[in-house]
Nucleic acid binder design. Structure first.
Lengths: 133, 133
DNA sequence: CAGTATCCAGATCGATACTG
DNA sequence: CAGTATCGATCTGGATACTG
């Protein structure tokens, strides 16, 4: 248990300064990070580096349904992580783009994701051992 | 879009080197982090700094049901994040303790959590604006 | 094209009751 | 004490069909 406690204590301290509503929102936002599609969708928009139409996004996020993509994008828009721009044309055109804030979130998530990916062998080993015993 | 891309690219690169099974496991582990009870349970054990009985854990993780706590602890044990020790006594005693690996995970999550907690006002503002417009 | 509306199957979780 | 078993409410997400 000789792990550096600094970061964790800082997080704990920050959480204690939050109202109940803010605490609930924090949990909700962390949940979004683990959401099946949200991170992937943001990554697609980040890699594009430009605004993408609904159908382009759907092509890149393999396996997502129209319904889920709509819901995902609305959620991201609501939190200011992507922008949604509707063009008054026929046929309709809607473009999505990641915000600076969204990019910032990706940057925050990256180290954790990288650690998990690096640790995946250890988890695999732990599970094999557990499932045998 | 002048965000540093280093971390994200590193994460992306790592993910591409994973097998399909490992990729699925990575997603599963990230999901655990956002799980309603897992992080909280680990935090309780981390703060205790010692082994805790099932009922003690349940007292500290407010609002959790017996069923959910059992499931949560089993999952954490399976991934090597906590240990479970059964004592052959009457009445039965079972003690749970966080592992070094579990502490490491908490440390990895802490910066992200802190960032979200710090950004919570920005999210709140974004939502209010969105919900009005 | 970019959705919305509807239906439906599976997972999840709390409450409750029971057991070694 | 530390679970397991079961039931029911809720939520999620895909498939499909329809629309401005």
């Amino acid at each position: 248990m000789k792990s550096k406690k600094i970061d964790w204590d800082k997080a704990k301290q920050l959480c204690e300064g939050l109202t109940e509503e803010q605490d609930a929102l924090t949990r909700e936002l962390v949940s979004r990070i683990a959401d099946k599609w949200s991170l992937w969708t943001m990554a697609v928009l980040a890699e594009a580096g430009a605004a993408l139409r609904f159908s382009r996004v759907m092509e890149h996020v393999e396996g997502i349904s129209q319904k889920s993509l709509t819901k995902t994008l609305r959620g991201l828009e609501r939190d200011g992580l992507v922008t949604r721009k509707v063009f008054a044309e026929v046929p309709p055109r809607v473009e999505y783009e990641i915000t600076d804030f969204g990019m910032e979130l990706l940057d925050q998530v990256a180290p954790l994701w990288a650690w998990v990916a690096q640790s995946v062998n250890m988890f695999q080993h732990a599970r094999t051992k557990f499932d045998r015993g």
